[in-house]
Nucleic acid binder design. Structure first.
Lengths: 169, 169
DNA sequence: CTGACTGCAAACCCTTTGCAGACCG
DNA sequence: CGGTCTGCAAAGGGTTTGCAGTCAG
C-alpha cells in the first residue's frame, strides 16, 4: 500500500469521525471499525463484505449494526451509494447511447442525450482495468416532484430519510 | 404521446422482437406483452412495476415469468440494468469528485479521476427535471480478471451468465 | 409433436424491526 | 446516569427454483 493511498485512507477516516462527532453520533467500538474498513477500501463493498471484514476485528458484530451504521452515515451525507439503488433491479431497453438523471429521493430515472457526454474519451488508466464497452453519465439530484412534496426544511441532510418506498409516478 | 415517442417505442419493440427471434427464443403471449411494456416506458421500471403493468393485459402472468424474461433479454444483450446491481447496496466513502469503472461480469468497481469528465456541463434540459447535485461517469466493461477467467468463447453474448454470485477479490 | 415456456408454491436470501441489555459521553 | 446503540431473533420482501402442465414453432 503506497503512502498516497495510506494518507487518503487516513483522511477519509478522519472525515468520517469528524462528521459523526459533529452530528452527535456516538463513536462506539463497532462504528469505529466500520469506519476504518470503509475508509481503507477502494472496492465499494456491499454490506456483507464489510460485515465480514469488520467481523475479523470485532467477532461479535452483527449484520444489522453494519446496516444501521451505513445508513446513518448515508443520512449524514458521509457516504454515498452506487446507482439508483432504490429497490430491485431496474431495466433499460434504450439501446441508443444515452445518459441518466437520477432522483436520489424517489429513485426516478430519466434518459437524456448529450453529444459532449457521448463523445467523452475514457482515460488510458481506466482501459488498463479491463475492456470498455460504454460510458454513461449519471446525474444525481432531487426531482421537481420531490422538491415540492416535502418543502425544504433541511438544507443539507439528516432528516427526510429517502430510503425505501417513496416512489410516485 | 408524440409521434417521435411513438416511433421510438415501435423501433424498440421491433428490436426486441427481432433480437429474440434471432436467438430462437419463443415469442409467447406473455413475452410479447413484457416487450411492449419495456419498449413503451421511459421510466426504467423495476420488476414489480413491470409485472403490474403487464398484469393489466395478461391477468394470469406471474412475477417469475417477468424475471425470467427480463434476464433472458439481458443475457441476449437486448436490455441493460442500471448501476452495478450485482447484489445488495454498495457504499462509497470517497468524498472527492470521481468516476467509476464497473465490470459487468463480476461487479467490480474502481474509482478514477478525469478532469475532463468532472468538468462536464449538465444540459439545461436536464436541469428542468430537478436539482443537480453532481454528475458521475460510469464506464462499463469486463475487467482483466474476468477476461482471463473465462477465455472468450462468446464474442457477443448469450453464454457465461454474469448474474449473481461471481465476485472474486 | 417436442422442447421451451409458464404458473404455482416453496425455498432462499438479503434487509429491517422490536426488544432487553450494554455502553458512550 | 440517560439516551443511544448493540445483538439477537423473528418478521418482511424481493428473487429464484423445481415441477407438472401448456404452448409456440
Amino acid at each position: 500500500m503506497s503512502n498516497k493511498t495510506q494518507s487518503k485512507t487516513e483522511a477519509r477516516l478522519r472525515l468520517l469521525e469528524a462528521g459523526a462527532r459533529k452530528a452527535g453520533v456516538k463513536l462506539t467500538h463497532q462504528r469505529l471499525e466500520i469506519f476504518r474498513e470503509l475508509a481503507a477500501t477502494v472496492e465499494h463493498p456491499d454490506v456483507d463484505t464489510l460485515f465480514r471484514a469488520v467481523q475479523q476485528r470485532v467477532p461479535t458484530v452483527s449484520v444489522d449494526t453494519v446496516y444501521r451504521t451505513l445508513w446513518r452515515l448515508h443520512d449524514l451525507g458521509l457516504v454515498t451509494t452506487l446507482g439508483p439503488q432504490r429497490d430491485g433491479v431496474r431495466f433499460d431497453a434504450n439501446r441508443e447511447p444515452h445518459h441518466h438523471y437520477v432522483c436520489v429521493r424517489c429513485g426516478l430515472v430519466r434518459d437524456f442525450e448529450s453529444a459532449a457526454m457521448s463523445a467523452l474519451r475514457v482515460p488510458d488508466a481506466v482501459k488498463q482495468l479491463g475492456s470498455v464497452a460504454d460510458a454513461q453519465v449519471e446525474v444525481r439530484g432531487v426531482c421537481k416532484q420531490c422538491q415540492t412534496q416535502r418543502t425544504s426544511a433541511t438544507p443539507g441532510r439528516s432528516k427526510n430519510p429517502p430510503r425505501r418506498g417513496t416512489r410516485h409516478e
